[in-house]
Design a protein around this nucleic acid. Structure first.
Lengths: 197, 197
DNA sequence: ATTTATTCTTAACCTGAATCAATAATTGTT
DNA sequence: AACAATTATTGATTCAGGTTAAGAATAAAT
């Protein structure tokens, strides 16, 4: 599918945040190797058990990752517009994904697949660096998540999410947020009630 | 302080696990820029509030990371011999560390500081790659930790640690393991009792 | 607009782990 | 060996959050 000039611009802007020194040459390589993917609400983007083949930029829409655990959906995270999403451990190690990634709304993804990225790393020093910066960025995300799950109470985790990522509440039903926070929908409802009064 | 030839060999072996293509030239650069540090039991390696200046290879001994939270030590992780330890978010962003890293036993560290690493990244494509692989490695560690804290019960987390990292139990008092698991020492004691019978 | 499905709330009760408090077992020290 | 200090266990009590079950509020579909 075609990628519009506007989309290219947007992605490039996001690249530049991480990597100001991106050259036209390396960018050209990226442009030639992106591929675009449209996913309907409720469809899988990554399937548990299959190797995750790419890192995807969420151009528009909303995605989330979840794991089936003892019959329940445990929600790992939300990845809105203008973020990168991937089952990164599966992607890195070429092993079956341990969780799903689905579209919560109709979503447009821009994919960069494993082989293309590895080739990019080999050809362009800056892309190698981009790979490092992506990994470092993802590390920092998880670092905050570990802190939150390890040291904060359910209520503190909720308030922290409200502060740090309020837009999620516009897109995601409350029972999913509860699962993300590691509590039941009932518990979240009670926390909200307690905080309102 | 001097680094022995034996120590160099050991570290190189650990580099090669992540990065088989390490050349002699890049390795030479590393050797010239390592510095060695001896830390006594109970001493700080990284202090909360100060910028973490290096990534350290634990050549011998035992280290652990913990955060002071509401008056209590929350133990983030254990880093034994032959692993890398750092307050990596602080290191990456040049901002004050949010937790401590201490020596649990007399420990020998081999430090690679920020400026040296950045310079290495610029000079040697392979070191840039090494930086990426380190970040990816740390990502995978945290990914498992998030899964454990989010989806497993205290007892499951304990059994998982027993399976995946039994050597920790030789070096670390039980109350620290409890904190790492996110429970009290009393709760861990009860879990052990329950499992024994 | 009415029905149907989904999501959210509330209440009663249950459970795993926290807290408080005391004792037992280790480990370290002189 | 005797003492002090640290670490681990056990019991009684409390509490956050889970479970079950029902009803209220939204949203979606015909």
């Amino acid at each position: 599918m075609e990628i519009s000039q506007k989309q290219f611009q947007r992605i490039r802007a996001y690249y530049k945040v991480l990597l100001p020194e991106l050259t036209d040459e390396a960018w050209q390589y990226c442009c030639e190797n992106f591929s675009i993917r449209q996913v309907k609400k409720g469809e899988h983007i990554v399937r548990e058990g299959q190797i995750c083949k790419c890192v995807s930029f969420v151009d528009s829409g909303m995605t989330y990752a979840y794991r089936l655990h003892e019959g329940k959906e445990m929600i790992i995270g939300f990845f809105p517009e203008n973020t990168y999403v991937s089952e990164y451990s599966s992607f890195l190690e070429r092993k079956p994904a341990t969780y799903f990634i689905d579209a919560l709304e109709d979503t447009v993804l821009i994919d960069f697949n494993y082989e293309q990225m590895q080739q990019g790393y080999n050809r362009y020093k800056e892309l190698e660096r981009f790979g490092r910066l992506i990994a470092e960025y993802l590390f920092k995300m998880l670092d905050g998540r570990v802190y939150s799950l390890h040291s904060l109470s359910a209520e503190q985790r909720y308030t922290q999410l409200l502060d740090s990522n309020p837009s999620v509440f516009q897109h995601v039903p409350q029972y999913m947020i509860a699962s993300y926070l590691g509590i039941t929908p009932e518990a979240l409802s009670r926390i909200r009630k307690r905080m309102a009064s």
